[in-house]
Design a protein around this nucleic acid. Sequence first.
RNA 1: GGCCCCGUCGUCCAGCGGUCUAGGACGCCGGCCUUUCAAGCCGGUAACGCGGGUUCGAAUCCCGUCGGGGCUACCA
Length: 469
Amino acid sequence: MTVRVRVAPSPTGNLHVGTARAALYNWLYARHTGGTFIVRVDDTDVARSTPEFESNILASLRWLGLDWDEGVEIGGSHGDYRQSSRFDRYRQVAHQLVAEGAAYFDDRSSDELDILRTRAQQEGKHPGHYIRPPDEPRSEGVIRFAANQAVEFQDLIRGDMRFDGDSIDDFVILRSDGTPTYHLASTVDDVDYGITHVARGEDLLSSTPKHILITRAMSVEPPVYAHLPLLFGADGKKLSKRHGATAVDEFRQMGFLPDAMVNYLALLGWSPGDDLTVFDRQLAVDRFDLSDVQKNPAVFDLDKLTWLNGEYIRAMDPAEFAAEVRPLVEDAVGSLTDEKWAAFEALAPLVQERTKLLPEAADQARFLYVDDLEYDEQSWNKVMDREGVSEVLDASLAALTALDEWDTESIEATLRRLPDRLERGAGKVFQPIRVAVTGSSVSPPLFESVAALGRNPSLERLREARRRL
RNA sequence: GGCCCCGUCGUCCAGCGGUCUAGGACGCCGGCCUUUCAAGCCGGUAACGCGGGUUCGAAUCCCGUCGGGGCUACCA
């Protein structure tokens, strides 16, 4: 049997990391088994779904490198993968289920149902126990599925699962406006598209018996289910906006790399074994199996993601790194000629080592391109506001002015002589020069920075700092 | 309230009856390196929620308990 899996985001928000992880696990499973990965858009909630969210979701999946074999943009033999274009089909199934006695119309008011629910709660019973067919058959209203039977199934991750008949309520499958609910649409699609494995968040575990019931009523064998552990925030609650960034797009904007993101997400609930933490997606594809996924929820840890991102940045080819950083620098200081950009490229490997998030690299490059250097106030106070700094700046200015060659080696050789001559510690000499040239006591290595900045700008900055003392 | 899931360092993951005085990673704390910051290297901190069983032997199996979480819509 060929594996067919899917991810089915609702376009009611940007791609959430939880959905992204579900997508990743489905993708890994498809790639591992040589199966098919499908992207379907669950937009039955017409009011809250938007085309913008849909594009964001698809773009984020692309960005992560989770390519799909069938889905919204591709179309193909299975029709449109957007649920809003299949409402007729869902309606047809709903009515057929009514005709077969598996579902029924219900036009009771929500007040009426609320009373039933409240009473059930007070009696300590599941509300579903009370929401059963009305005494007299109706011919309008919503369509409910008659769910009065126990359901057992094997969850690939959680094992034996059993739900009693009276714990499953007669849930709505078709709203009174004729649109399908999630339960119906999702299930019908899984059937129609021949989905073999449904790997989704654990929040849907208690809805699964409903989906199995619908599937059986359609005379089809249900797919295998695998309920993934939820992603939590630091407070142990389901990850949501109040925990900070939750959309993949936000992480992209913060400067995370897709490979780091995928690596990190893969680790949230699964591991390739051998104590491996950093691994590429091929290794994950080779080793992934849904049944190895962890049962307990995982807390999303931005610190670890950030560390991992640093690992990936350091592993980049320096030219590739520079190319990623360039637009960020240009956003900050305006567009640069290739000639001017060469200054950064010279420094790139040193900056790369010091970067965990792409924008940090742009900050480190800033001193190369601004006309009026802003001095970091803390740095200035700590380093420049002390005795003897004027001598240091004068001496370095003199020494550098006399230099014939403006390269790292010559600059280093010249400046290295200063501490002895001035009878001061190396730090006391180099830190003022650093602040003068880069504006901060934290910067890429000094000699390389001075070399990259160039002769005249460097000398001018030393003079400017001297004036400001 | 009801139904369901989960429970190994602060966090992520390894462990699937003996090799566990519990391993790796992030974080944190020291140290080395060093002109700053990083990176790198070395070392340290820290966990099987609790109580019963089963067994010669349990982090690993069973039961209970406590704790956490999810669902309980004409949202998905």
